[in-house]
Simulated assay, not measured.
Amino acid sequence: MSRVKLLDKEFELSIPEEKLLKAVDQVAEQMNVELADKNPLMVCVLNGSFMFASDLMKRLNFPCEISFVKLSSYAGTGSTGQVKELIGLNENLEGRTVVLLEDIVDTGLTIINTVDQVKQMGPEDVKVATMLFKPDACKRDVKLDYVGMEIPNDFIVGYGLDYDGYGRNLKDIYTVVE
């Protein structure tokens, strides 16, 4: 599909699945070297990063666990400026290497808030892996350890990202048509 309609907006294809999976491969290769002896806990930030986390986990060839945290900072096509924690972590993080798996880092607010919360739980190290990064939208000094790809500051859907709950199921990424 070159175009999709979700609710009241039209979106056009911008990143095909093949390109997304190549980016996941690159992140996995880097992690397979750097985290091989760390036994990390991968923390998937829901809802958006479920596809990235699933594809990534299948490519990791070292012992690791996965857990999930549900956060929200978006309404419609924009950030609310506040991070709402909906479901938290239950695992003991003391002394562990924790890798936060994000779908997208744009303003940086959500990931900085999440890293700060995780650090309070006593891990040895906290790393951040994001499928997508919007450098032009980033308003914070964010340390990203693993980045699938950098993208322009456009509103996108697909591959786990949504527009008011719709479009997460799309295997490709689509950009809003203004």
Rank of each mutant, 00 (worst) to 15 (best):
M1E: 09
R3D: 05
R3Q: 11
V4H: 10
V4C: 10
K5E: 13
L6E: 07
L7P: 03
D8N: 15
D8A: 13
D8E: 14
K9M: 13
K9F: 10
E10D: 14
E10T: 13
F11Y: 14
E12T: 07
I15E: 00
P16S: 04
L21K: 05
K22N: 03
D25T: 04
D25R: 02
Q30K: 15
M31H: 03
N32G: 03
V33H: 11
L35P: 10
A36Y: 09
A36P: 01
V45E: 02
V45W: 02
S49R: 02
S49Y: 02
F52H: 06
S54G: 15
D55P: 03
D55E: 14
L56K: 00
M57I: 12
K58V: 02
R59L: 01
N61H: 15
P63A: 14
I66C: 06
S67F: 01
F68M: 06
F68R: 04
K70E: 01
S73F: 10
Y74P: 06
T77L: 14
T77C: 14
S79A: 15
T80Y: 12
K84M: 08
K84N: 11
K84E: 11
E85T: 06
E85K: 10
I87D: 03
I87F: 09
G88A: 10
L89W: 03
E91S: 07
N92A: 08
L100N: 00
L100V: 00
L101N: 01
E102Y: 01
D103F: 11
D103R: 10
I104E: 03
V105M: 09
V105S: 03
V105D: 03
T107R: 05
L109V: 12
L109Y: 06
L109E: 07
T110G: 09
I111W: 01
I112G: 00
N113A: 12
N113Y: 13
N113H: 14
T114N: 05
T114K: 00
D116F: 02
Q117G: 09
Q117R: 14
K119I: 05
M121G: 02
E124A: 15
D125G: 04
M131N: 06
L132Q: 07
F133A: 08
F133P: 00
K134E: 08
A137G: 15
C138N: 15
K139H: 10
K139L: 15
D141L: 01
D141I: 00
D141Y: 00
V142L: 08
V142I: 12
D145T: 06
D145P: 09
M149D: 07
I151M: 13
P152V: 11
N153Q: 12
D154W: 10
F155Q: 10
F155V: 11
Y159F: 13
Y159S: 02
L161T: 10
L161D: 05
Y163E: 07
L170H: 11
L170Q: 12
L170M: 12
L170W: 12
I173H: 02
I173V: 15
Y174G: 08
T175I: 14
E178F: 09
